[in-house]
Computed example of a mutant assay.
Amino acid sequence: MNIRVGQGYDVHKLAENEELWLGGIRIEHTHGLVGHSDADVLIHGICDAILGAANLRDIGYHFADTDPQFKGIDSKILLKEVMKLLRDNGYELSNVDNTIVAQRPKINPHIPAMKQCLSEVMNVDEDQISIKATTSEKMGFVGREEGMAVHSVALIYKSQK
């Protein structure tokens, strides 16, 4: 069996008067993430992990933050395209494991909704998507609530088509 692993990492700055999108869902919070797209740091980490596993470069290569067509885009659209690229190259997703690093808000109550949303977008079972959350114990940019980070790992395999 031809299996491959890829890792993704993404960060986005937090700011007032922005919406907070994580894992394809909107979370009520005093601050949101800033980016060229909707700044969904979780989806961006997943995209990079999958693209890396398939040796298809990274999210910035496919969806440049200098391209006006991606300004404000819903990251679920980008993830759907990444899954198409994966499958067009003869691979399927085995699983993706993610760690969201955020001081606030509490992420755990939102994980079931994120998993449901992502499984629909990616056309995979929810049990193929792991989402965990941690803080940075009030250290660094995450601890100062200046931003959020995500670490993602994807395992893919060559499909038998």
Rank of each mutant, 00 (worst) to 15 (best):
H62R: 12
V142I: 15
H110L: 06
A53P: 01
N123W: 03
K76P: 00
L79W: 01
D88E: 14
E16H: 11
G35K: 02
Q103H: 12
Y61F: 15
D125K: 15
M122G: 06
V124G: 06
V11S: 14
K106L: 11
I111Q: 07
V150H: 00
H44G: 01
L33G: 02
H44N: 12
G23L: 05
Y9G: 11
I129G: 03
V11D: 04
I27G: 04
A149R: 14
R104W: 02
I27R: 07
R4L: 08
S152H: 04
D48S: 11
D74N: 15
Q160L: 07
V150D: 03
S119H: 05
F141L: 13
K138G: 02
H12P: 02
K161A: 02
E145M: 14
S119L: 06
E81N: 14
G24S: 08
L51M: 11
E28P: 04
I100Q: 10
K106R: 12
I107G: 02
S94K: 10
K13H: 05
K76R: 15
C117M: 10
H29F: 14
P109F: 10
H31P: 00
D38P: 02
G90D: 03
T99K: 13
C117I: 03
I73H: 03
H110K: 11
D125R: 13
K106C: 00
I25L: 09
E16F: 13
N95W: 06
G24C: 07
A53N: 04
V5Y: 07
T66K: 12
S130G: 14
I50G: 03
T99I: 15
D10Y: 13
